[in-house]
Nucleic acid binder design. Structure first.
Lengths: 198, 198
DNA sequence: GTCTGGTCGGCAAAATCTTGCCGATTAAGC
DNA sequence: GCTTAATCGGCAAGATTTTGCCGACCAGAC
């Protein structure tokens, strides 16, 4: 929460450009964060093996192992660490890959230190990787409990229905649910079994 | 709807460019999918209100409501539907927003119909981005319906509890649920509100 | 035509869940 | 000690949901 006290964020900063790396590291440090740097994926991985960090900030494009590869490796070592990418040449597919891999953010180069700091601090309060760690389900406070549960029921049924090409009998077995109950729910939730034959 | 032929994917295609819309729709149809189109977010939302679709493919940039806004709205109506964006002017932040919102994919314009089809079919078998888009909920078929719904309820409650530092009163408001009911559920599900001080 | 497998929906009893009312408990303040 | 705010849980009337039983449909097989 507060970057002032002893609970400073411990950040691993990875960038192959030494000047940028140093500059950013310095800025973050004077801003109260604990920063450890690495100029390539290999070094960064070594660093991760030593112990947990609160966040990883890495360039996407680096000689040797690229950011995505590195992030994948990092996830193996520390499954829940938030990874924040930045890149000057990010293509849409790159960003998609990164986000799928669980990136919590993606900044564009040149990275403004203040901006980076803001994002990092944001990680601190807001339930971090919430977005992907938890799924698109607990979208904010928007929907009331009841509605969400119903939505989930609908999802389960529709999914199972699709998975079994709409054969009720199979869905029944898969979901271990009473036929009458399933029928009732489908009626209530307005689920039609379009998924016809195949 | 079209229940005659196959267990076709039922796709909602949204694009303000009528020509592109028509062309893509045609291609997908001859490829065996069921397609319903909309030339703006408003129409698309109306369509969603009518019933579930298997996937939504939408342009990111549209007059009126943009794709992100639309996706958010769509999620309220159908929380689990996979949303696939495409855009020709996607900026990195756009892609980040989209992915955070649970997009399963992001294509660049011009969209090659074959490519789009491939991505859509990919959704069909292996719930692709499932891991994070959907959360740990519709994992295996293992658990029976009842159990899964309960697990989801538990998740919702625990999440909200954590989000409000264990203050029941706040959870009540957030989830719009009766206090007595929440208490009952917590007792039934064996949820304790440990979440002490921070 | 007749039979069979897969589905539906009406009905009603049984099982559950929801919720208002009320008193109890605990921690913090006055 | 007394008061207030935040929670809990017992109880019971109501509201909903779940299910078994039964008859009906429809499509394909015989």
């Amino acid at each position: 929460m507060n970057a002032s006290s002893a609970a400073a964020l411990y950040v691993l900063l990875v960038d192959d450009d030494h000047d940028v790396l140093a500059a950013n590291a310095r800025f973050l440090r004077v801003s109260g964060l604990d920063v450890v740097v690495a100029d390539c994926a290999t070094v960064a991985v070594e660093r991760l093996k030593e112990g947990p960090v609160d966040a990883i900030v890495t360039d996407l494009v680096m000689p040797g192992q690229n950011g995505i590869e590195f992030a994948r490796r990092a996830r193996e070592l520390q499954p829940f660490v938030p990874v924040l990418f930045f890149s000057g040449y990010a293509s849409v597919p790159d960003v998609v890959s990164a986000m799928r891999l669980g990136a919590v953010d993606f900044l564009e180069k040149p990275v403004e230190p203040e901006h980076l700091l803001t994002r990092l601090l944001a990680l601190a309060d807001g339930p971090v990787g919430a977005a992907h760690t938890r799924g698109a389900f607990d979208l904010s406070e928007a929907m009331p409990f009841r509605a969400r549960v119903l939505a989930y029921e609908r999802h389960l049924i529709e999914t199972s229905l699709a998975q079994h090409q709409g054969r009720i009998a199979d869905v029944l077995k898969a979901l271990k649910i009473n036929r009458r109950t399933l029928n009732e729910k489908m009626a209530r939730l307005g689920i039609r079994r379009d998924h016809a034959i195949d």
